[in-house]
Each structure stands twice: as structure tokens, then as C-alpha cells.
Write a protein that binds this DNA or RNA. Structure first.
Length: 343
DNA sequence: AGGTTAAGCGCG
DNA sequence: AAAGCGCGCTTAACCT
């Protein structure tokens, strides 16, 4: 494919893979999509081929003949941060972001007389960052209950929340997420398509408005170097080997992992606590609801239709109460005939 | 036949 | 020199 795109058609090879080959990934093809009709066709083909090979064809062929369902395996010890993973098949990466993809999700249906209930934590990692950092501005944003990305944009750009543009909100959202991943100004610039100076300016304004977040991140880095590990709110540790590597890239990567792990790991701890109490509660009831899946910040159930409001309320109460943070743990729950409709 | 690596891409 | 965290699956290429 590289030969056709870059040698025969002479399109510019703008990106390279880690091994030095000309990249044909999504970002690389997007960059040359205006120069020739082929890149767009390849992108469309890839998206559809992925859906078909990984989901449409595969899930249909692994339906268990005895139960008529697909059954995943969950793993408690596979993820560094403490999340559970899912395999054979992985039910934690069922498509949701595109309309074609959501048609896969619509195949996850409840039996006659039952409905699908999907309950997910709203912005759980950002709320945990507010709690762990104690930053006044971020705490206030969540305590007031509004749109946190809009609130961030208002702070960073010096506007009233109602005057924030869609693009400014998008930038603020990228900053909020990027920070939790240890992103640099370089990475933010690439993500937003602005120059490095502008991205640096955004980050500087963010940290001046949320100084507690900055202090928390620095403290996390220092603790990681001092102790060789970081930990979640509940004290589960992640040891990081590469913090002392002579290789600068490995060391920087370990620092980013260290910054992220308290948030991702605490979120994993919280949903595990919720799963324990929800499961125990359902076990005390008549058999009208089953917990089916966990997708990092979401739990999926099948529920007898006549019990759905009671179960929804009970699930929300237990998920929200799974930890006492200095901000509310908001849970959003939807109901439908299939998993897509439940969102 | 079965394993490994690289590239790419689905999700939170 | 690299530049955003955490996974699992498919395909192609290559190896034992």
C-alpha cells in the first residue's frame, strides 16, 4: 500500500511508523485525503473491514449453542493500573462512536420481557483528580454540577460560561483529558491543530487557574521517583521500573504512566467496590436482574421490565455510594431493548 | 502447524 | 530524542 500511495501516485509521506516506514495510519491518510480520492476510500474500507472481521462475523460464530449468548472472560490481573480486562471476545471495545458501529451494539439485546440497563459514571477520572488534588476551582466546578469542560474553557479563555464557543470547549476537553495522561504542549498542539506557542499558552493558563492540579501532578511525579511506585486512593500500588532508566524516552513514559495511574486506578477500585455491593444486593432480591458486563466506567444489566425502575434506582445508589469523595459521584443510567438504546 | 512482531484500530 | 494513559483483536509478514 505504501508503494501505491507514495511511489506510484507520488503522494507525500508525511508520517513515519516507529520502525521508520512511511505510515499509512488514519492520521497519515487524513493528511493526504485532499490530494487524491484513494486515501478516503482506504479509510472507509478499513473502518468497515474492522467492524466486519472483529465484530459482525466473529461474534456471530462464537455464540454458545447451549446458552444462545456470547460469553467473555474477565481478567483481574492483566492491567497495570488495576482495571479488569476482557477477552475471547473482548466486550470492552464494542463500537459506539460511529453510526455503523452502533449497529453492532444494537445486536446486544435483552430477552422477551427483559430490558437492558446501562449505568455509567460521569467524568469519574476527572472527579477523582479533583478529589486527589483538592484543587478549589475543579472541586467547585463539580460541586456546582455544570458542564465541566465548559467551565474549564471559561476559566482558561477568561469568558462567562455561556460565551464559550464550541471550539473553545473542545480545546478545554482536550486539555482536561490530556493532562490526566501527562500530555505535553507538543502533544496538545498536535491534537488541537494549533502551534506550540498557543498550546503552551493554554496549558499555562490552565495551571494558573487550577494550581492545585499542577501541584498534585508534580507531587505525584516526585513520589514516584522517591518511592518507585504510586498508589490509588485506597492504597493499591503501581510499581514503575522505568523511572530510573537511562533511556530518556522510557523514563518520560514511566512518568506519564505514574501521573495517570492514581486516577485510572482509583476509578477501577471504585467500580469494583460498586460491583461487589450491587451483586450482593441483586442476590438478595428475587431473580429479576443480572449484571452482565463491565466496561471500565459502566455496568450493563438485563432486568425484568416490571422491575427496571426499582433496579435502576438501586444500582445508581450503590454505584454513587461506592466511594466518598469531596465531589459527587454522578451516575447516568439508561434503559432500552438493546445496549445502544440504553445509552 | 504454531509462535512472534509490527501496524493499525476498536473501546474507556 | 521524543512528544497522551490503559487494554485486546485482526492481518500480514516472517520465523521455528
Amino acid at each position: 500500500m505504501q508503494a501505491i500511495l507514495f511511489d506510484e501516485l507520488g503522494l507525500p509521506a508525511k508520517l513515519k511508523t516507529p520502525t521508520g516506514q512511511p505510515s499509512t495510519n488514519e492520521e497519515a491518510l487524513e493528511a493526504i485525503a485532499d490530494d487524491h480520492p484513494l486515501p478516503r476510500l482506504i479509510l472507509d474500507y478499513r473502518g468497515l473491514a474492522k467492524l466486519r472481521s472483529t465484530y459482525t462475523d466473529k461474534l456471530a460464530e462464537i455464540v454458545n449453542p447451549r446458552t444462545g449468548r456470547v460469553h467473555t472472560s474477565y481478567h483481574q490481573g492483566a492491567v497495570a493500573t488495576g482495571r479488569v480486562s476482557s477477552s475471547d471476545p473482548n466486550l470492552q471495545n464494542i463500537p459506539v462512536r460511529t453510526e455503523e458501529g452502533r449497529r453492532i451494539r444494537q445486536a446486544f439485546v435483552a430477552p422477551e420481557g427483559w430490558v437492558v440497563l446501562a449505568a455509567d459514571y460521569s467524568q469519574i477520572e476527572l472527579r477523582i483528580m479533583a478529589h486527589l488534588s483538592g484543587d478549589e476551582g475543579l472541586l467547585k466546578a463539580f460541586q456546582e454540577g455544570g458542564d465541566v469542560h465548559r467551565a474549564t474553557a471559561a476559566e482558561v479563555f477568561g469568558l462567562a460560561p455561556e460565551d464559550v464557543s464550541a471550539n473553545q470547549r473542545r480545546a478545554a476537553k482536550a486539555i482536561n483529558f490530556g493532562l490526566m495522561y501527562g500530555m505535553s504542549a507538543f502533544g496538545l498542539a498536535r491534537q488541537l491543530g494549533v502551534d506550540r506557542g498557543e498550546a503552551s499558552d493554554y496549558m499555562a493558563r490552565y495551571f494558573s487557574r487550577y494550581p492545585g492540579v499542577h501541584a498534585f501532578m508534580e507531587a505525584t511525579r516526585q513520589q514516584a521517583h522517591r518511592d518507585g511506585y504510586v498508589e490509588t486512593l485506597f492504597g493499591r500500588r503501581l510499581y514503575l521500573e522505568n523511572l530510573t532508566s537511562r533511556n530518556q524516552a522510557l523514563r518520560a513514559g514511566a512518568e506519564r504512566a505514574a501521573v495517570n495511574a492514581p486516577m485510572q486506578g482509583t476509578a477501577a477500585d471504585i467500580i469494583k467496590r460498586a460491583m461487589i455491593t450491587v451483586h450482593a444486593w441483586l442476590g438478595q432480591r428475587k431473580d429479576d436482574a443480572h449484571m452482565l458486563m463491565q466496561v471500565h466506567d459502566e455496568l450493563v444489566f438485563e432486568v425484568r421490565a416490571e422491575a427496571v425502575e426499582e433496579v435502576r434506582a438501586g444500582v445508581i445508589e450503590r454505584m454513587s455510594g461506592a466511594a466518598q469523595l469531596s465531589v459527587p459521584l454522578l451516575v447516568e443510567a439508561g434503559v432500552g431493548a438493546n445496549w445502544d438504546e440504553a445509552h
